[in-house]
Design a protein around this nucleic acid. Structure first.
Length: 656
RNA sequence: GCCACCUUAGCUCAGUGGUAGAGCAACGCUUUCGUAAAGCGUAGGUCGUCGGUUCAAAUCCGACAGGUGGCUCCA
């Protein structure tokens, strides 16, 4: 007999060799039916696995977060099986679970897989699911003498070098080689899996893309087929509804519909803003400026272009070269003026700034500073340019020119923690103003490409860690993800669709001040090197605007709406009165428009709704006589006839 | 940059080798209208660019540009 411990603390006696499936059955038949996998001493395993004596065991059902991963991993196997049936030349590589489903990377020596192939693959998967093949775990040796190993090698042609590489790796690490089999299909896998393929009825393929073996662009190009899986049909449908909702909120689509911005092929990655988009952009900047003033920032302006020499000093030339725009001249040939010499190197080559920090360092060092001025906070709405590979540009989220709400704090080492604490509060307050209250923080440490000594990095990293710990803030640690000049804290915010976006960043830098030979006179009368903190809250004003468009689905709160009120005269006869109302609203400080078009009220209402204008005010004969207005709210529907003062009073709390 | 797909009127899209189409938007006229689409009419395109095949190319082929989905997730 063995004894295992259950999550509620109780113990359960089982016969020797009993599995988690046996345990589930001994608890109740109902549990046995819904059991997906088990958690034994903290590790997720198959139900079939023999339980060790004294183990802590929890039976996982579809309600447990881990179960979905198990299901999706099983679905990846099933998809690989289906793909091999349709594409016999395909070679399997890896097929992990990802946030929204799973994928399988496949090497195709010839031909291709496109979404057109999905129906056939899905039909094959349906057959496999219907057959209800059990997933069987097979432990194997490393050669063909083992039945499972031989079968595994044979299943996709027998000469799959990717599999060989994977097996070699496992052998080197001295791990057990295990396969999972369902029906005739077998795949290298550490498991666990759902009991059988009948669990995999709610699976759909979602997209196909390219990828590389081992994520290395030098290695083989693979085809990555994505899919997703759920326990129930409803959950699967909800997921596709979510995708549909996200698609409807796409800021690139709304950007055109609401006349906020557009892109032109002659300016790839450089957005143009229409008046309404520029209005929002300016409102965001105004809001940030008022917050910077409250916190004693000094706003500065620095040049877009600096000499290449300066970028050597800052380290950007060595570490950021690929992302920078450099200047070259075109000159008319001295002998033949009709000929133009391209790409002529300047005597003093220049580069467009990808970051604002060197400019701020140059400003700082124009004179000697005292510790009494510290902390000194230089802020700038800095326009930076960064080259991006053509395939990664995406609406306002990934552009080649954007405005950072950038600032650099210069302070003494003792002031670092105070500054960071201030910034965390500051940033959370800003996000809160947009209803973005779900903020999580990540700490990134020294990357491979870095400047500064190990000692300096150590000091910087521990300063950030200590501040977070002292404030009791939970964070995720990302080793090796820091900026080249220092470790950083990143702020990730969740929008109304529960998607996470990285926005704010706080980066500690002990290197750049030294490289630029910055100094301050301390209380001891000696020269010291200040500490520099790089920080941005929106990150990129343009990108933050894109996030807000999607977060609000284009229905901006009153204070951010480019047009706050639209006045709709019932007919031409009431245009004069509409204009009077408009003048009063403008005087009050509202962004108001009159719809002068010769359309019916219903149509004007429709247009105002589609433009997501917070208030539509209808004026006709009744209103003109009573000197009143008839208000319709975007969010609350028809509010009815009221006096202008009444309407304006109701807005007071909204007004920022 | 790499893989797949896409590019036709301002927008959304139809058109698979034989004289370029629709809806919406725009403009004009009629209508003067009460809370999500009044009616009629007009104008608008070297079919992304360049080259090739063909008697003939939006359509077939190639190059380039731009766009879309991916390219961190390691059995």
């Amino acid at each position: 007999m063995i004894s295992v411990k259950l999550p509620d603390g109780s113990a359960k006696e089982l016969s020797d060799g009993a599995s988690a499936a046996d345990l589930a059955k001994s608890i109740s038949d109902g549990l046995a039916r819904v059991a997906v996998a088990a958690k034994v001493n903290g590790a997720v395993v198959d139900l079939q696995l023999e339980l060790p004596d004294g183990a802590e065991v929890a039976i996982l059902t579809k309600k447990d977060a881990e179960s979905l991963e198990v299901l999706r991993h099983s679905a990846a196997h099933m998809m690989a099986d289906a793909i091999l049936r349709i594409f016999p030349k395909a070679q399997l590589t890896i097929g992990p679970v990802v946030d929204e489903g799973f994928y399988y990377d496949i090497y195709l020596p010839e031909g291709k897989i496109t979404p057109d192939d999905f129906p056939a693959i899905e039909a094959e998967m349906k057959k496999i699911a219907k057959a209800g093949h059990p997933f069987v775990r097979c432990v194997s040796g490393y050669d063909d003498a083992n039945e499972h190993y031989a079968r595994y090698k044979a299943i996709d042609g027998g000469s799959n070098k990717f599999k060989q590489e994977l097996v070699e790796g496992i052998k080197e690490r001295g791990e057990t080689l295990t396969f999972y089999k369902h029906g005739d299909f077998i795949d290298l896998c550490r498991g666990p899996h759902v009991p059988d393929t009948s669990w995999l009825k709610h699976v759909k393929l979602t997209k196909v893309s390219g990828s590389y073996w081992r994520a290395d662009a030098e290695k083989e190009q693979l085809v990555r087929v994505y899919g997703t899986a759920f326990f129930s049909k409803t959950e699967l449908e909800d997921y596709f509804k979510f995708l549909e909702e996200a698609r409807k909120r796409d800021h690139r689509v709304l950007g055109e519909q609401l006349e906020l911005f557009f892109m032109d092929e002659d300016a790839p990655g450089f957005p143009f803003f229409y008046p309404k988009g520029a209005m929002i952009w300016n409102l965001l900047v105004d809001f940030m400026r008022s917050n910077l003033r409250k916190r004693d920032y000094k706003e500065v302006k620095t040049p877009l272009v600096l000499s290449e020499h300066m970028w050597h000093t800052s380290g950007h030339y060595d570490n950021y070269l690929e992302n920078m725009f450099f200047t070259k001249m075109k000159l008319r040939d001295e002998k033949d003026p009709s000929k133009i010499n391209q790409n002529v190197e300047e005597d003093r080559p220049m580069a467009v700034k990808p970051m604002n920090c060197p400019g701020h360092l140059m400003l700082y060092r124009t004179r000697l500073h005292s510790h009494n001025e510290f902390p000194l906070r230089f802020g700038e709405m800095g326009l930076v340019h960064r080259r991006e590979l053509s395939g990664v540009r995406h609406g306002l989220f990934r552009v080649q020119a954007f405005t950072q709400d950038d600032a650099h704090h210069f302070c003494t080492p003792d002031q670092v923690k105070g500054e960071i604490a201030l910034l965390i509060e500051f940033f959370k307050e800003i996000y809160g103003a947009f209803g973005l209250n779900d903020v999580h923080i990540e700490l990134s440490t020294k990357p491979e490409k870095a400047i500064g000594s190990a000692e300096v990095w150590e000091k910087a990293e521990s300063a950030l860690k200590e501040t977070l710990d002292e404030k009791g803030i939970k964070y995720q640690l990302n080793e090796g993800d820091g900026a080249f000049y220092g470790p950083k804290i990143d702020f990730h915010i969740r929008d109304s669709l529960n998607r996470s976006w990285q926005c704010g960043t706080i980066q500690l830098d002990f290197s750049m001040p030294e490289r630029f030979k910055l100094a301050y006179i301390g209380a001891d009368g000696q020269r010291h090197t200040p500490v520099m903190i790089h920080r941005a809250c929106y990150g990129s004003v343009e990108r933050f605007m894109g996030i807000l468009i999607e977060h609000f689905a284009g229905a901006f709160p009153l204070w951010l709406a480019p047009v706050q009120v639209q006045i709709l005269p019932v007919s031409e006869k009431f245009v004069d009165y509409a204009k009077q109302v408009h003048a009063k609203l403008v005087e009050f400080g509202l962004r108001s428009e009159v719809n002068l078009k010769d359309d019916r009220v219903g149509y004007k209402i429709r247009e105002a709704s589609l433009q997501k204008i917070p208030y539509a005010i209808v004026v006709g004969e009744k209103e003109q006589e009573a000197q009143s207005i008839n208000v319709r709210s975007r969010d609350k529907g028809e509010l009815g006839e009221m006096q202008m003062d009444q309407f304006l009073e109701s807005l007071e709390e909204w007004k920022k």
